[in-house]
């Protein structure tokens, strides 16, 4: 442990613990998932930084979306994201979740992910190498330090809009809203 950080640890232990204990749930869409096994196993060893994969979204606090998102998988992504306990962070991989990437004109791949769930950071590249993943994680540390990794707060505050976007894409949704949605606000749009 870095000695300079001891004051930080004493000041806000919860935040610091979040920084150094990322339990990750991966959404295995697309090609990005190929970059995950080398980064968590012997070659790059993400466990040095406390990053380990977990099996269920309930135990996780970091959500990695690794690659393009088709309309069908977006449903699963939204459900997984809503199941994670707060605070939670989302990082999207590669150029496809940013603007569609090479699937910019595909008939069933959504073009930008942050219209449907909040994304704290993007790692650009097609695909990003494991080094880029680590740099992304260090950037996320900085964001958490500055309290700017507030995707889950935005999701709670603007849930009406997120839900409206999701419903515009899917029509009627299969599951009830996570937070209460007031009908009046929806009618204004």
């Amino acid at each position: 442990m870095d000695r300079n950080q001891i004051s930080k640890w004493l000041k806000n232990p919860g935040k610091m613990a979040h920084k150094y204990s990322f339990h990750v749930v991966y959404f295995c869409t697309g090609c990005g998932i190929i970059e995950i096994p080398p980064s968590i196993t012997t070659r790059w060893d993400a466990e040095r930084f406390g990053i380990i994969p977990v099996a269920t979204p309930r135990q996780a606090n970091l959500f990695l979306i690794t690659g393009y998102v088709s309309t069908k998988t977006l449903k699963a992504i939204i459900r997984t994201y809503e199941q994670m306990p707060e605070p939670k962070y989302t990082v999207a991989f590669g150029s496809c979740p940013i603007n569609g990437g090479m699937y910019y004109d595909s008939y069933n791949t959504i073009t930008s992910l942050d219209k449907y769930i909040p994304v704290d950071g993007y790692i650009a590249g097609c695909m990003p190498r494991p080094e880029a993943v680590f740099i992304g994680v260090t950037h996320l540390w900085k964001l958490i330090d500055m309290d700017k990794a507030d995707g889950y707060k935005r999701y709670r505050e603007d849930y009406v809009h997120y839900r409206a976007n999701q419903e515009q894409l899917y029509g009627q949704m299969d599951w009830p809203p996570l937070f209460p949605v007031e009908k009046k606000e929806q009618a204004n749009l």
Binding site: G14, H18, Y20, S21, T41, T42, D45, P85, P87
Partner: peptide
């Protein structure tokens, strides 16, 4: 043949889990 997490990693994990909202 990995470096591995620090030995006190479970303490950090427990602290993180306590600071999370539970369902």
């Amino acid at each position: 043949w990995r470096y591995g997490p620090p030995v006190y990693q479970p303490f950090i994990d427990v602290m993180r889990a306590f600071s999370q909202k539970s369902i």
